[in-house]
Design a protein around this nucleic acid. Structure first.
Lengths: 193, 193
DNA sequence: GTCTATAATTCGATAGAC
DNA sequence: GTCTATCGAATTATAGAC
């Protein structure tokens, strides 16, 4: 609430306007991808004029960069029981994906936009690789372990949230965890590169 | 060669022109996605006028429908040893993906275009579900088994060919098969739904 | 069968009034 | 801080000459 305006200030605080733009942008990017998520539509959803988007974020790429900032927020894996790592990781991502639209937006934009793909790669190398390095047998092999885990988790998200295969979309949280946890556990901890 | 024209025919046979358009379309859809793969660029690649694309395929959606026709071509799984199903399936998809651009085009377009997503779902239900039904313990559970297998295979293709995670792109065919085969084998044949 | 010309939209981005 | 008006570019798609 640090940006709340006193009486006599602007009609809406710039902080509130910027937050409304970001929320609308995440929804549009998640639903339509980069090209079809127009600044005009995002502004309409946020209830403001399109020129405000340009004013606050410079251009469309700047808007996407701001809307796609994310901290995966996985806890230090060394505080968890070693045999439950796969289940904990799958459950964490499941909740994160259902919680908001950032991950779906990132996935959709990453597929058709070079900047989006670069952003997904950065999140992968900055947040998934260190996670794998903390638990896999050979730290030098962490990037590949992280890539395998990412492939499985992104693949499920792709079929469930984007392509909407009926069986993938119908699975409960418990079913997803039960099926994917052994896979992720093996990718992270199997001996022998 | 059944469409080869005799002397005195048109400058180029319509069959050859149509084939050149389809090849260029697959490359552009695979590289740029649906929105940014313009009819103009496809026509330029094929060395013809954009209006020819309209003439042969009606509109952009018709062009994509023609360019995305595919037969995954997996052999009857009942002719294979039961314990090698996962490895055979992973190896088959790996070769199919490296062979041409159809699958990458399908994946990229499926993510940002409703018609593309519908096409991927159709291929899934017509070609992957029967495959799973032929080998999994409970045929009624085949759709879910097929969805899990698809999630793993599409996830690897996504990280390797589209998002281009360096470790995923660097893995050899043998490494991909060795890591993914046990996963696919379990999704197909594990007892207990 | 092939191409030119153009209609009809739609987009990102800018300039400037209030 | 907000909005109107508009520019310039790009797109799909059509009509019609040759």
């Amino acid at each position: 609430m640090t940006t709340e305006a006193p009486a006599g200030g602007p009609r809406r605080t710039s902080g509130a306007t910027k937050a409304a733009i970001l929320e609308a942008a995440r929804e549009r990017f998640a639903a339509d991808g980069y090209e079809r998520a127009t600044i005009r539509a995002i502004a309409r959803d946020a209830g403001i004029d399109p020129s405000m988007v340009m004013r606050y974020y410079g251009n469309k790429e700047g808007l996407f960069a701001a809307a796609s900032e994310i901290d995966l927020g996985f806890p230090d894996p060394r505080t968890l029981p070693a045999e439950g790592l796969g289940a904990a990781l799958v459950a964490h991502f499941f909740d994160r994906w259902e919680g908001d639209d950032v991950l779906t937006a990132l996935l959709r934009v990453g597929v058709t936009n070079a900047t989006g793909a670069e952003r997904v790669r950065a999140i992968f190398s900055e947040q998934m690789v260190p996670l794998a390095a903390a638990v896999c047998p050979d730290p030098d092999d962490a990037p590949r372990r992280a890539a395998l885990v990412s492939a499985q988790i992104l693949g499920l998200a792709l079929t469930r949230y984007v392509l909407r295969f009926p069986p993938a979309a119908a699975m409960s949280r418990e079913e997803v965890v039960a099926w994917l946890a052994p896979t992720v556990q093996r990718y992270l901890t199997a001996e022998g590169a």
